[in-house]
Amino acid sequence: MSPTLTLLPRGAWTARAEAHARRADALTAGHRERRAAGSSHAVEDFLYTYYPLRPAVLRRWSPGAGVALADAAGSPVASARWFTTEGDAVRLDGRAYLADRGGAVRHHATLLAAVADRPPVFSCFGLHEWAIVYREPAGAHRHALPLRLGEAGTDAVVERHQITCSHYDAFRFFTPEATGRNELRPTRELQVELDQPGCLHVGMDLVIRLGCTWHAEGPQPRV
């Protein structure tokens, strides 16, 4: 085993895994209860629809890179994709992971570096949320919550301001009528060039990228 690996005794890593599962269960309890009842909450369940986050995946614990788990052969971690067993110790096989996910890792690293090196812009004022419902057709509203200013008032806010949304995953939800009002034309290809640290959506994405390793079935949290 490489001397650069940190070896966690079984008692230590099982305690971490169990604590992580308890935290995940507590944080997702409301969502799981609503899902079982066939209902949803427009705000609290948003992340489960915007991101591919499933409670069963969120409760899986991963040691991350550079850590070996002692006496872990036969454990759930040992059978996880990209993990390898050496004797009774289990660790992430970095080469295997990068062989499959190297492109995504390089893209995320480039994006993170670009965003960190760019000054934040706060003057968009979150108006992408207003542009998403601008002149929305009747019956097209995505949730049951009423617009705070009503349809006419919301449209007036969009029309009185310059929309400067720079993030593609916000811009792509604009109504057709709002698209032409945006100062920029974000695309997936321009994401590294346009994303900036003052953007709410960029911050949300960075939490996902920094807090998760992308598992074959979705993000696998690291603690």
Rank of each mutant, 00 (worst) to 15 (best):
L112E: 08
F122R: 09
L111E: 12
G103S: 15
E129D: 13
L147C: 07
G103T: 15
G102R: 12
A144Y: 02
P137V: 10
I132C: 10
E129A: 12
A113C: 03
I132V: 12
A99I: 03
R135C: 00
V133M: 01
L112Y: 07
W130A: 13
L98T: 06
A114G: 07
A140C: 06
D117R: 15
A104T: 14
G102K: 08
R101L: 01
T110C: 11
G102W: 02
A116I: 04
C124N: 06
I132N: 06
L111F: 07
I132Q: 14
A99S: 15
F125D: 13
R135T: 00
A113Q: 11
A113I: 07
G103K: 06
P120F: 03
A113K: 14
A131D: 07
H128Q: 15
H141Y: 03
A114I: 03
A144T: 08
G102A: 11
R106I: 07
R148Y: 03
A99Y: 09
G103M: 03
G126L: 11
G126N: 09
P137K: 03
G139H: 01
V105A: 13
V105K: 09
G126H: 05
P120I: 12
T110E: 10
A114T: 06
L98M: 05
A131G: 13
L147D: 00
A138F: 01
R148A: 14
R101Q: 11
R101M: 11
G102S: 00
E129V: 04
P119Y: 06
E136C: 10
H141G: 00
W130N: 05
P120R: 07
E136W: 01
A109H: 13
S123K: 12
T110R: 15
V133W: 03
T110A: 15
R148F: 03
E136I: 11
A138K: 05
S123F: 08
Y134K: 06
H141W: 04
H107R: 14
A114L: 09
H141E: 02
A99G: 15
A144P: 08
E136R: 11
P137I: 05
L127R: 10
